[in-house]
Structures are given as structure tokens and as C-alpha cells.
Amino acid sequence: MADRITKNMARNIYFGGSLFAILVFVGLTFDTVQKVPELSNDDQITHSVASGKNLWEVNNCVGCHTIMGEGAYYAPELANVFDRRGNANEEYFKSYLQAWMAAQPLPNNGRRKMPQFNLTEEQVNDLADFLIWTSRIDDNDWPPNIEG
């Protein structure tokens, strides 16, 4: 194959092909940015959800967990943790998360350990709000089942 292609042809394929790919990608990026607010319920990002996301970041939660499948693979998926542990009740989920965060690290021998982050009650509630908001993102029905 390579014998029939000259250097100039190869260069033109490179420039033409890349330009085409970049243009399509930029176009789709604009379209995606337009559509994400509806798919993610952007209007429901309250101060508490935003603050929960910040806590998620500054405590490096993604260093062990995944969220919508991205992150480390050491600890459970959390984009659907509200569906899994929340009993379809926001207040129930918040009290669950308060107890869970306070109990860390669990004393079980050999079990993977989550550090104690010493978050305040308000911070844990913010984190819960962020995870509840995340659980409602339209992510093409992922994960396949409740276990994440």
C-alpha cells in the first residue's frame, strides 16, 4: 500500500483528514455544550450541590471511587449510590451518609480502608446533595445494574 502513496499524498491526507476531524469535533462540542444542561438538570445545581462537588474534589474521592465509571477502581461506583443506598428517600440517604462517613475507617481486618475525613454535618449533607444530583443525570442508563 505504502508504495503507491507518495510523500505529498500522505501529507495531504494528514492535513485534510485532521482538519475534517477537528471541524466535526468542534461542531459536536458546541452541540454537546448546548444539550448538557438539560441532560444533567443543570438548573438543579444548588449552592449545596456545588459545594458538595468541591468537597468531592478537595478530598480526592476520585482517587479510590469511580463516578459514572471514571476514577480509580478501588472503591464502589458512586454516581448511583443514592439509588443503591438511599431507599428513594433523600433524608434517609443523608442520615445514612452521616453515619457511614462517621464510621470510617471501618475496623474490619484486611478490608480496603476509607480514611476519616472529619467532615462537618453540613459538609456531609452537601456531599449527599451532590451525589443525589449526580444520580439523576441522563447517562444512557448506565450502569447496567444497581451494583454499579
Binding site: L28, T32, K35, V36, M68, G69, I137, D139, P143
Partner: peptide
């Protein structure tokens, strides 16, 4: 962009 809340044409 399959399962992170982006439009489904990415599939």
C-alpha cells in the same frame, strides 16, 4: 462520552 451524561449521538 458514552455514559457520562453527554448526548447519545456519541455512542
Amino acid at each position: 462520552y458514552f455514559y457520562i451524561g453527554t448526548p447519545d449521538y456519541w455512542l
